[in-house]
């Protein structure tokens, strides 16, 4: 079943700014979908359109089969936004109990659920601490508990790792994945942190200047940028990068190197990473102008070994 479907969705603000245009994509139920793009690409606007906070000026979207603006949808969805905070003067438990009331969860059920989630996120010993006394990473975890209180079928995360150190960011993303998989929740993860999204998302969408420039699974996205296969040849004379079309081209390349008297140390097929695909479609400056994939200097790329000396 489709959890989210947008058709030519667009938003132009009252001041004339076109934040989003022609956004069409679908997310299946239970999927973790990463919407990736630079700041100002339209990620937050997308979340606000889907959670019904904003009304679209073009197109439409359905969430769990209903129009996004439907009030009841907010009982089945949750949003964790970059800047949306909870109440620092209240304790963790008071904050969660307050939000439980807003989601119409009875006191007994709320207490049980809060204990369960705090336990799972290792926050039980901090439940009586004032939220303001917690670190940014722990506050994000409390936000996660708040978002999951009412067993939402969809959670929108807008830059959930913003302001976190790499270790905390990794931890939060892993928690999102664990919780989502355990609860069977559909997740729309908006971020500009590609490596973290790559680790947990089933599907990806690249957003630039308010337009969805490409979306699909990782494999589909990588295939779309692999028009040119490359192989890295490491010999005693140094490293060379060669393009090839057929596997036998690689054999020919190796043979020629041997005939030239060079010693083969390593032959690797270069496979672009999601980051390569992202920059290919979004561009280095987020301008969405297709740029050539820079495979030589991308240290994070995935390499498949063909021959190792």
């Amino acid at each position: 079943m489709k959890a989210i479907e947008t058709v030519e969705l667009g938003k132009t603000y009252d001041n004339g700014v076109k934040a989003l245009q022609g956004l069409s994509f679908t997310i299946e139920e239970g999927e973790i979908f990463g919407l990736l793009g630079p700041n100002g690409a339209g990620k937050s606007t997308t979340v606000r359109l889907l959670n019904g906070t904003l009304a679209p000026t073009e197109g439409h979207s359905t969430v769990l089969g209903r129009e996004s603006r439907t009030q009841e949808l907010r009982t089945e969805t949750a949003t964790v936004a970059e800047l949306a905070q909870m109440y620092e003067h209240m304790t963790v438990a008071e904050n969660l109990a307050f939000f439980a009331v807003l989601y119409d969860i009875g006191p007994a059920d709320a207490a049980r659920r809060i204990e369960e989630l705090l336990g799972r996120l290792h926050l039980l010993d901090r439940k009586d601490d004032k939220l303001g006394s917690l670190s940014t990473g722990l506050k994000k975890r409390v936000q996660l508990v708040r978002a999951l209180l009412h067993h939402p079928r969809i959670v929108f995360f807008d830059e959930p790792t913003s302001g976190l150190d790499p270790e905390s960011a990794r931890e939060v993303v892993e928690l999102i994945e664990t919780m989502a998989r355990e609860e069977g929740t559909t997740v729309l993860l908006c971020t500009h942190n590609l490596p973290l999204a790559e680790g947990i998302c089933d599907g990806f969408g690249f957003l630039a200047q308010g337009r969805l420039v490409r979306y699909g699974s990782k494999r589909e996205l990588l295939e779309s940028v692999m028009s040119e296969r490359q192989v890295r040849l490491l010999t005693d004379a140094g490293e060379e990068l060669h393009s090839y079309t057929e596997p036998r081209d690689v054999n020919r390349l190796v043979r020629r190197a041997i005939e030239d008297g060079r010693i083969i140390r390593e032959v690797r097929q270069v496979v672009p990473s999601l980051e390569d695909a992202y920059f290919h479609f979004v561009g280095r400056n987020g301008s969405a102008e297709s740029t050539k994939v820079d495979m030589t200097f991308n240290k994070r790329r995935e390499e498949h070994e063909l021959v190792e000396n």
Partner: peptide, 14 residues
């Protein structure tokens, strides 16, 4: 200013 209103707006409160 404290960025808490946004969280409220994302709940089912009308």
């Amino acid at each position: 200013e404290r960025k808490t209103l946004e969280t409220l707006l994302y709940t089912p409160v009308t």
